[in-house]
């Protein structure tokens, strides 16, 4: 696939444009499945919050508002860098593309660091669901809030890890010249995934951190 002249398009495709459109459509289809994957959790969250508004408000007050807010800002900034990398590769500036991707990756890692710190705090406060859980006198449903908190943020963090892996792969591909102005698709495709994972957090942030009032 490295020789652009003798192999203008990979096997099932007639030309690169068709390949590119198929890649985008495929990624968007995958994102639709992701919406429903997280969607099951959001539906469950909605039902339980509707049933236990006070326990959920109490749970939200136990979370660190500033960590949630800072993490949202970190992720939004990382998304900007991914979008800039896409722009740079299309303008044939591979160095800038790599620089932007490294920045996005570092921000992603920073997000996970903050998240890990918050998990550690919850562990110390005995707010991890299970036999060691201490409801601090609140309703038992508090434990369900934290069950959802860990599952939702945990699955989100898992997606972030995949995203970081994809960014690492992109950096290598750009370095090898396999992703370039002639073949920029991979950046946009990984970008779509990264932005989407960002959007999941955009909803997790208010649902988990901002309902304490």
């Amino acid at each position: 696939m490295n020789d652009a002249l003798s192999h203008p398009a990979a096997p099932p495709y007639v030309d690169r444009d068709q390949h590119s459109v198929a890649n985008h459509l495929g990624m968007w289809t995958f994102l639709a499945t992701e919406i429903l994957f997280f969607g099951g959790l959001f539906t469950g969250y909605t039902v339980l919050r509707w049933a236990h508004p006070h326990a959920f408000a109490e749970g939200s007050r136990h979370l660190e508002f500033w960590i949630g807010t800072a993490n949202t800002a970190v992720l939004l900034t990382s998304s900007l860098f991914v979008a800039l990398a896409d722009l740079a590769i299309k303008r044939d500036d591979r160095r800038a593309a790599r620089r932007h991707l490294v920045a996005a990756g570092l921000l992603g890692a920073a997000f996970l660091g903050l998240k890990g710190f918050e998990y550690f705090q919850k562990f110390q406060e005995h707010l991890v669901p299970g036999s060691g859980f201490d409801a601090h006198g609140a309703q038992p449903a508090l434990q369900l809030f934290f069950f959802l908190y860990f599952l939702m943020t945990g699955l989100h963090a898992l997606h972030m890890l995949f995203g970081l892996g994809a960014i690492g792969w992109l950096l290598r591909q750009i370095g090898r010249g396999a992703v370039s102005r002639e073949r920029p698709d991979a950046v946009a495709i990984v970008g779509l995934y990264w932005h989407f994972v960002d959007c999941v957090w955009i909803f997790l942030y208010p649902l988990l951190y901002l309902i304490g009032g």
Binding site: H24, T29, L31, A32, T33, I35, L36, T43, T46
Partner: peptide, 20 residues
Amino acid sequence: VRVFALAGFLWLAISGVLTF
């Protein structure tokens, strides 16, 4: 592509509305 992007949200809405 726009239709595909919206489909996920639409189906999520189906799940929410009928569950409720």
